[in-house]
Simulated assay, not measured.
Amino acid sequence: MPNAARAELDAAGITHPALRAGYTACRALNATHGRTYFLATRLLPAGRRPAVHALYGFARYADEIVDDLDDTRSPGEKAARIDALEAQLQRALAGDGPEHPVLAAVADTAARYALDPRHFTDFLASMRMDTTVTEYATFDELARYVHGSAAVIGLLMLPVLGTTVPRVEAEGPAAALGVAFQITNFLRDVGEDLDRGRVYLPTEELAAFGVDRELLTWCRRTRRRDPRVRRALAHLVAHTRAIYRRAEPGIGMLEPVSRACVSCAFTLYRGILDRIEAADYHVLHRRVTVPVHTRAAVAGPGLVRALVARARA
């Protein structure tokens, strides 16, 4: 176990060896697959980090069931695995010792922070949708999916981060931030999602610019540009920026020791939209990322703010 992980678990008062192993597994998933989130989480007080790692680790574990390109199981078989995961999670939340270390960690986090179990149900409902739904016509249709896949993650995070206002006041911005992150992912990963047979960008929004699945697939395969795709993606980037604007006031509603973390994630993830624009929306054939030096430039001042907030607390 890395020294940093050990220190975080000690700070959180997590002593049981099996739980420590579960939280460490979640931390490794976050460090490997969620570099931006992991960097932002480092700005939290050490004792709060394991809970964030547990929530990320669970989300990643469930997502892999439906998104692993090497998994040749049928949609029905994947849906059955999600059903089995939900049953295991319900038992874990009820206090039965789960076999999987990720479930042990997330159940412990749910108990520590009195997390609403309905959010986990909604999340798994969206994961189940990924086994059968391959596109969404409108933003209203997509809203049901992103509520479970993204908005509830923001809602689950609120008790961990803490608020300076009644929590219900912070729920709207927290949910909006989760949705903004998710749609940013859709824009960044549109090519990879095509490989999985899915188009998350609303098809009616695309059609307004003369874009359909066939054109997106052709652009990805040939690495050719098309002005219709450029205009459609520019429109959707602008739409996503508006969601970030709705989410931003929520940062000030968080406890001071948590603001630097969320502000860092906000800035870096919104920066992906900047990278998409800088590439002139030619992103179907490659995955844009925020450069390491940019992440460091954002995280450095954030660390200073986090240390000041902790000292005052």
Rank of each mutant, 00 (worst) to 15 (best):
H53D: 15
E99L: 06
R128F: 00
G76F: 00
A51C: 13
P75R: 05
D130Y: 02
L29D: 04
A87Q: 00
L85M: 03
A104S: 10
Y37Q: 10
E86Y: 02
F123S: 08
P50S: 05
R73M: 03
T72N: 10
G57I: 07
A94F: 04
A92P: 04
F123G: 05
A46F: 11
R118G: 05
I82H: 03
V66H: 02
E64Y: 06
L29G: 09
T32V: 15
T41A: 15
P98E: 11
A59S: 15
A125L: 00
M129Q: 04
P98N: 09
A62N: 11
R35V: 14
H33S: 07
E64Q: 14
H53A: 12
H100V: 01
A59I: 15
G76Q: 06
P75G: 04
E77L: 06
D63K: 01
A59K: 09
Y61T: 15
M127P: 07
T121D: 09
T131L: 01
A125K: 02
D70P: 11
E77H: 08
P45S: 03
D63H: 09
Q88A: 13
Y61N: 15
E99F: 04
T121N: 05
A54Y: 11
A84M: 00
N30A: 15
F123T: 02
H53N: 13
A114S: 15
S126T: 08
A46S: 14
T121L: 01
V52F: 10
A105L: 11
F123Y: 09
G47K: 09
A114H: 14
G97V: 12
E99A: 13
R35I: 12
Y37T: 12
T121W: 01
A62D: 05
H119M: 06
A107H: 04
L39C: 12
R42G: 13
G95A: 05
D130Q: 03
G97P: 09
Y37D: 04
R118A: 05
T131Y: 00
D70N: 14
V52N: 07
A94L: 02
R128C: 03
L124T: 08
D71N: 05
L124E: 08
A46Y: 09
L29P: 11
